[in-house]
């Protein structure tokens, strides 16, 4: 149970960073931390004590595999998280080119 609590603490750090900081790069970093925590939580649910990784060998019987379904789901989630991060970086760099700042409270001028 304490592993789950540590994972929730990691998510809370990411949530605090997204809500509290005013720098755009810091907000992107906070979103990354939240994504790491969620991926880790999926894998923690599927873990089994004394388990083996879900790969068969040729000539021996392997019992006690860990749950392979969360791993397949998280494999999708990592790639989508990467594309979301890259998209956010592109938008942030375009905003920096326009306004010469990363501060989100100074981005309030209307420039067509």
């Amino acid at each position: 149970m304490s592993v789950y609590v540590l994972c929730f603490i990691l998510f809370s750090i990411g949530l605090y960073c997204v809500l509290r900081k005013r720098n755009l790069i810091k907000i992107i970093i906070g979103i990354g931390i939240m994504e790491y925590a969620v991926n880790l939580f999926f894998i923690l649910i599927g873990y089994r004590f004394e388990g083996r990784s879900p790969i068969y060998a040729h000539d021996k019987v392997i019992k006690n595999m860990v749950d392979p379904l969360p791993q397949a789901v998280v494999l999708t989630s990592i790639v989508i998280g990467l594309s979301v991060t890259l998209m956010l970086i592109a938008v942030a760099m375009r905003i920096y080119e326009r306004y010469k700042t990363f501060d989100i409270t100074k981005i309030n001028r209307l420039k067509g």
Binding site: G51, S53, I78
Partner: peptide, 11 residues
């Protein structure tokens, strides 16, 4: 450590 080598390479 959690027995997911695919995800380790990917991450």
């Amino acid at each position: 450590v959690l027995k997911a080598p695919d995800l380790a390479i990917m991450q």
